[in-house]
Amino acid sequence: MGRTPLAGTEQRHSVQELEDLAFELRQKLLHLCGTYEGAVHIGGDLSAADIFTALFHYGLNVDPSDIANPERDRFVLSKGHAAVCMYIAMAMRGFFSYEGIVQTYGQLDSAYGMHPCKVQLPGVECSTGSLGHGLPLAVGMALSARHRGDDHRVVCLLGDGETGEGSVWEAVMAARSNRLGNLVAFVDRNRQLMTSFAEERVSFEPYPDKWRAFGWNVVEIDGHDMSQLVAAIDALPDTDSDTPTVVIAETVKGKGVDFMERNLAWHAGSLGAEDLERALAALAASREKETV
């Protein structure tokens, strides 16, 4: 089924351009973490940065100047604690300004809360943050689209930790039962929970097989390889297909900053001036290593 490209989506970014945008997104994340007085969920933000970039700058059929367009794709951030990464990705896409995020993030009555609120921030499709709820909401949105005969996609980003919630698997079963091929789930598979590594508390493996057992189309990729993210998006089935798709993206929590990577202490935190300089230098070194 052909979909109408919305404004700004006719010319898609190249993989190289997307990699540059992801690097810029991580820089902006670190700067915010260094200016905000409270804790930022920086570890999970950094692990999902490439996914956010691929979606908002390549995969999602959205027009920032026409956020109510009925033909737009819908995006649901189930791991709502990664809201600031979503805000910055949206700002870089043209929904609003990055400066506004930095000036008001986390403040009383700010549109940019620690978790996203659709009432406060136009362009956000769902208010989320209670883990395990995003995919059920996305299933309802995808089912509603089917009943209306719409051909847009509903895309949901989950953390792997929250897939320990029973509500997720109820939604997984409901999506296949209703043949919602217009639904796509991306899983940020960083294998860490808030205070432990995943398999220490919950037995997720064999993880992809669990999704297959529920009848989903399963795609496994390196979530930091932009070419693989682009290929996964390009290979998504048409929205009138019968099978929902999950893209399981293997990631590293704290990706790009060596002293944060796979470090449980950096689930959330803040950066002083010295640590910010150190983090930005580490990010630049990581980027240089990847481009050699």
Rank of each mutant, 00 (worst) to 15 (best):
N217S: 13
D238K: 11
L121F: 03
V76D: 02
A235Y: 01
L264H: 00
H115V: 13
I42S: 11
M90Y: 02
E71Q: 15
A111Y: 03
L6V: 13
H152F: 13
E220L: 07
D188V: 11
L135T: 08
G59Q: 09
Y98Q: 06
S167Q: 14
E288F: 06
R262G: 00
P64L: 12
D188G: 12
H57M: 13
Q107G: 11
A48E: 04
R26L: 01
I233V: 09
A268H: 11
R278N: 10
K253G: 00
M86A: 06
S227V: 09
S203D: 12
H152Y: 14
D258S: 15
F95D: 07
A174N: 12
N263M: 00
M194S: 15
M141E: 02
V76G: 08
N190K: 13
N182H: 09
H57S: 12
E205G: 06
E205M: 03
T195R: 14
M226N: 10
V246T: 10
A142D: 00
A39R: 12
D238P: 10
H81Q: 02
L276N: 04
V246S: 06
D45I: 08
S270T: 15
F96S: 11
V184F: 10
V84C: 07
E17S: 14
E170F: 09
G129K: 01
S78G: 10
V62E: 14
T128Q: 03
A22V: 00
E10C: 09
A39N: 13
D150M: 04
F95P: 08
P70S: 13
L193A: 14
S167M: 09
D109G: 05
M194F: 11
G38H: 07
T243R: 14
L158Q: 01
H147D: 00
D66F: 07
S97D: 14
L271D: 06
M92C: 02
A82D: 04
S227N: 11
E250I: 02
G2Y: 10
P237I: 01
E277R: 15
I221R: 07
S130A: 14
R262E: 05
T104K: 11
L229D: 05
H133A: 07
T243N: 08
